[in-house]
């Protein structure tokens, strides 16, 4: 009457133990990457109703962000321009280019264009553009180098951890106010965030709070 369990089963526990550890590590790594906004949001590049290129407008022609997003320094919401703003130039430039047909049609009929939203914080988060943009935080910190994007891409994770990093050490992301809309601005050589950055923070009395009431209410 032989053994129920074959001989090799004696080595099984060791195999299971080691295998289990390795598999567990892989799952944890997978979840921490794939399940968090670092993956689910970054790289999101939807097709827009009109192939508007920031690279051309803001990069090459150097149009200031506030020309189209004119309320960014007045409200929590940075508005998307209506077709009328586009038509200020495009009545002359590329007046009959087929790619701009939806813009022209939207302008005549006052029917707004449904742009596809890329950067969106959850409903329970109250992000405010005005207080950041007026206080030395540039668009590039959160939206990345938009002036080099032909199609706008979700470049930063915009997760809570992302916001907290900046709120915890604002001196690394603060820049002089007049450089806020200059997306190509790099801190000059002798710029040391500990010295100049902290200097700006103290001078402007920046209190970027870590506490919940700054974003949640």
């Amino acid at each position: 009457m032989s053994n129920i369990f074959p001989k090799w089963t004696n080595r099984l526990p060791l195999i299971l133990l080691v295998g289990g550890l390795v598999a567990g590590a892989c799952v944890v790594a997978g979840v921490t990457y794939y399940f968090t906004p670092k993956y689910t949001r970054v790289g999101y590049e939807p097709i827009q109703p009109v192939a508007f290129s920031h690279e051309v407008h803001s990069g090459q022609m150097g149009i200031d962000c506030r020309y189209c997003h004119n309320d960014v320094d007045k409200s929590w919401f940075s508005n998307i321009p209506s077709a009328e703003t586009c038509m200020k130039c495009h009545t002359q430039v590329l007046a009959d280019d087929p790619r701009l047909a939806p813009i022209r049609e939207s302008f005549e009929k006052n029917k707004p264009l449904p742009w596809v939203q890329i950067h969106k914080t959850p409903d329970y988060v109250y992000f405010n553009h005005a207080v950041h943009v007026n206080r030395g935080v540039s668009c590039v910190s959160c939206h990345g180098k938009v002036n080099e994007m032909d199609v706008v891409k979700h470049s930063k994770s915009l997760s809570m951890a992302f916001c907290l990093d900046c709120h915890r050490n604002p001196h690394e992301n603060v820049r002089p106010q007049d450089e806020v809309f200059n997306l190509n601005w790099e801190p000059p050589a002798e710029w040391d965030s500990e010295r100049e950055g902290k200097g700006l923070v103290d001078q402007m009395k920046i209190r970027s709070a870590e506490s919940c009431s700054s974003c949640h209410r």
Partner: peptide
Amino acid sequence: LPRHHHPLLANE
């Protein structure tokens, strides 16, 4: 342990 295979386990 666990050692599921052992000569004694086969002995009547």
